[in-house]
């Protein structure tokens, strides 16, 4: 007797009891609101803002709506898995909406409701917090969003990127996924988060990773090799710029930025040198953004006659 192989019915999502359901719910929400759902950028980076879907797409006149999870690496924040809310690797949920829609705050609040935050039970507040990244030649105005006193999201209207005025302005939402989940699930340690509805915890997935990576970041990584990598990334960035492939150049800037962070964690960059390294990364990142804008500008100007780069 033959039976059709049947897949089990899809379970209901429960963002209040599963980290991955929370992410999937946000995907559903933003997909329904016109965003392309991207996968993480496949490079080590310190923040979702470094994703080309944010930085490079913030340039130019074309509309762009995207949402994605970006793993973030902050080597100096590693605590060997011993601190309940500090990690050297964690997730941000990024939404970029360009131009910023007039109901962007309402959309954001609806997304919170979708993952189980009721604004009549919890005190949601928009508290001034402006954003600036000298590395990217970028700044914006906005808020940190508080939920009962805890910062759960960074909300920014980009005003400049790569030294250029954002025309039009993009709205960027960066949810701190772990802290939001800790809040919604009511746990005091990130490692106690339920990752799914089948008994797997965040600690099961990441605790060993935090221990080993903290040790590598702080104690093991070969600093000579890192210095070498930094120099090579810098050179490759220049090479890519010279050949008019600014996206490739930008990737090398991202790489150099992360190598610099690792060198910092290894404690081998003095205070005096620090500024100089930051300056070098900034030049790479800005150079890449400028080149990208420069190459794309004629095409943009053709499509949008009222638009100009500067």
């Amino acid at each position: 007797m033959d039976t059709e192989p049947q897949s089990p019915p899809l379970p209901e999502r429960d963002p209040t009891r599963s980290f991955q359901d929370m992410i999937l719910t946000l995907h559903d929400f933003w997909a329904a609101n016109g965003c392309v759902i991207l996968q993480p950028y496949d490079m080590r980076m310190g923040a979702g803002t470094f994703h080309t879907a944010t930085t490079l797409r913030a340039l130019g006149p074309e509309p762009w709506n995207a949402a994605f999870v970006q793993p973030c690496r902050r080597p100096t924040d590693g605590r060997y898995g011993e601190n309940p809310n500090r990690l050297q690797h964690y997730y941000q949920y990024q939404v970029i909406l360009k131009p910023s829609p007039s109901d962007i705050q309402e959309l954001y609040l609806k997304s919170l409701a979708a993952i189980g935050v009721d604004p009549l039970k919890h005190d949601i507040r928009f508290v001034e917090d402006d954003w600036e990244s000298p590395t990217l030649g970028a700044w914006g105005l906005g808020w940190e969003v508080w939920c009962d006193g805890m910062e759960v999201t960074q909300f920014t209207y980009f005003q400049q990127m790569g030294g250029f005025d954002c025309k039009p302005v993009a709205g960027e939402l960066t949810y701190g996924l772990e802290r939001l989940a800790m809040y919604i699930q009511g746990v005091d340690s990130v490692y106690d988060l339920a990752f799914n509805q089948h008994g797997v915890s965040y600690g099961d997935v990441f605790l060993e990773n935090e221990k080993q990576m903290s040790k590598w970041n702080f104690e093991v990584a070969d600093t000579d090799a890192l210095f070498d990598l930094f120099t090579k990334a810098e050179a490759e960035c220049q090479n890519a710029l010279a050949h008019d492939v600014p996206i490739a150049a930008y990737e090398q800037a991202v790489e150099a930025s992360h190598i610099f962070n690792l060198l910092q964690a290894r404690g081998v960059i003095s205070v005096q040198e620090r500024a100089s390294y930051m300056g070098r990364v900034r030049d790479l990142a800005r150079g890449s953004c400028e080149k990208y804008a420069e190459i794309k500008a004629p095409e943009w100007a053709e499509k949008y006659p009222e638009w100009s780069l500067v």
């Binding site: 402006d130 105005l141 025309k167 039009p168 638009w307």
Partner: peptide, 12 residues
């Protein structure tokens, strides 16, 4: 500090 926003911000 002030800012631009929305579709109109396609112009400086």
């Amino acid at each position: 500090k002030s800012m631009r926003w929305g579709a109109a911000s396609i112009s400086s």
